[in-house]
Amino acid sequence: MFIPKGAFARAAASEPGGSLQPPIRTDDLGSAVIIVGAISVSITTIALALRLWARAQSNKWSFWWDDWILMVTTLFSHGFLALNMAWTRLGLGKHVENIDMASLLPTIYMSKASILMYAICIYLIKVSALLLYARVFNRSKRFRLVLRWLGGAVTAWFLCTALVPWFNCNPIRKTIDPFVPGVCFDRMDWFLASAFINAAIDLTILIMPLQQVWKLQMTTRRKIQVTLVFLLGYW
């Protein structure tokens, strides 16, 4: 979170002897954030409703854990999007130098809450996909064992993603209050590592069912169609 640094730099530049201020940037992407958030809420709501409707029409399968977790995921996703849309009132979408100092602490709180809700959403999506595989390919003990190990890796990734942002400074209190004396660390390496691990886990989840699908007794064309269904379903 670099807002404190920018805000303090702006304040320092206004003092006598301070460095010259850069050209004022007045563009604001807050309205774009709201539009994208509203569209995302609509799309995810429609997609979830269609999935639940399709499941309700099936006489063979009833609702299972992957369905319930996906519904919980949607609630967190809507909360995450609503939080970011509300955040625009405090300056989300604006350049750092245009954010009011009075909004500094609320902005940091919003940022931390947003990161946490994002991590929960991503985690639940992965868990829902793994549970779907466990339901569809429940006859393979080896496959289910791999699912358990991957579920453990996903949980470990989630805990790191959710907890590390709260321990970025020394003392810890400075993580949410930049006015507390102390030192904060550069988190770029952590962001890159987290993104790489997240991408690797997603790729693993995507390719996991392929071996099971291609073992089925069906035509090659049908196998390709089923494979695309799994790939598009997770994306």
Score class of each variant (00 low, 15 high):
Thr155Met: 14
Ala56Pro: 01
Leu81Val: 12
Thr161Tyr: 09
Ala102Met: 05
Gln212Asp: 09
Ile122Gln: 08
Arg187Pro: 04
Asn84Glu: 07
Trp235Thr: 14
Ala113Gly: 13
Asn59Thr: 13
Ile108Asn: 02
Arg144Gln: 12
Asp186His: 11
Ser58Thr: 14
Met188Trp: 00
Arg135Tyr: 04
Leu20Phe: 09
Met218Glu: 03
Asp189Asn: 14
Arg10Cys: 03
Trp166Val: 00
Thr45Trp: 10
Ala32Trp: 14
Leu50Trp: 13
Arg139Phe: 08
Ala7Lys: 02
Arg135Cys: 07
Leu52Thr: 12
Glu97Ser: 13
Val36Gln: 02
Ile120Glu: 08
Trp166Met: 14
Ser103Gln: 12
Phe179Met: 14
Ser40Lys: 07
Ala119Leu: 00
Asp186Thr: 08
Leu150Met: 11
Ser140Glu: 08
Cys184Ala: 09
Gly233Ile: 03
Ile201Pro: 05
Ser62Glu: 06
Leu92Tyr: 14
Val96Ser: 10
Thr219Lys: 12
Asn168Thr: 15
Cys121Tyr: 00
Thr45His: 10
Gln57Leu: 14
Leu145His: 05
Arg135Ala: 12
Tyr123Gln: 09
Leu92Lys: 03
Asn198Arg: 04
Pro106Trp: 05
Ser42Tyr: 09
Ala12Trp: 09
Glu15Pro: 00
Leu131His: 02
Ile46Leu: 15
Ile172Leu: 10
Gln211Lys: 14
Val180Tyr: 07
Phe230Gly: 01
Leu70His: 02
Met85Thr: 07
Val183Gln: 10
Trp61Pro: 00
Arg51Gln: 07
Val41Leu: 13
Glu15Arg: 15
Phe196Glu: 01
Asn84Asp: 06
Ile207Val: 15
Leu232Asn: 06
Trp61Arg: 06
Ala38Phe: 09
Gly17His: 08
Phe230Ala: 02
Cys184Arg: 04
Ile69Phe: 07
Ile35Glu: 04
Thr204Gln: 06
Gly37Thr: 08
Leu81Phe: 13
Phe185Trp: 04
Ala193Trp: 03
Tyr133Val: 00
Phe143Ile: 05
Gln217Asn: 13
Gly91Pro: 07
Phe191Ser: 14
Val136Asn: 04
Arg25Leu: 15
Ser103Asp: 15
Asn59Ser: 11
Arg139His: 12
Arg89Trp: 07
Ser114Thr: 13
Arg222Ile: 00
Arg148Tyr: 05
Ser42Ile: 13
Trp166Glu: 10
Ile207Arg: 01
Tyr118Pro: 01
His78Pro: 00
Ile125Met: 09
Arg144Val: 01
Ser77Asp: 07
Thr88Asp: 02
Ile115Val: 14
Ile201Trp: 01
Cys184Lys: 09
Thr26Ala: 11
Lys60His: 11
Lys223Gln: 12
Val127Leu: 09
Ser111Ala: 11
Pro209Met: 09
Leu104Trp: 04
Leu150Lys: 02
Ala193Gly: 11
Ser14Gln: 14
Leu210Tyr: 05
Ile120Tyr: 05
Lys5Ile: 15
Ile197Phe: 11
Ser31Ala: 15
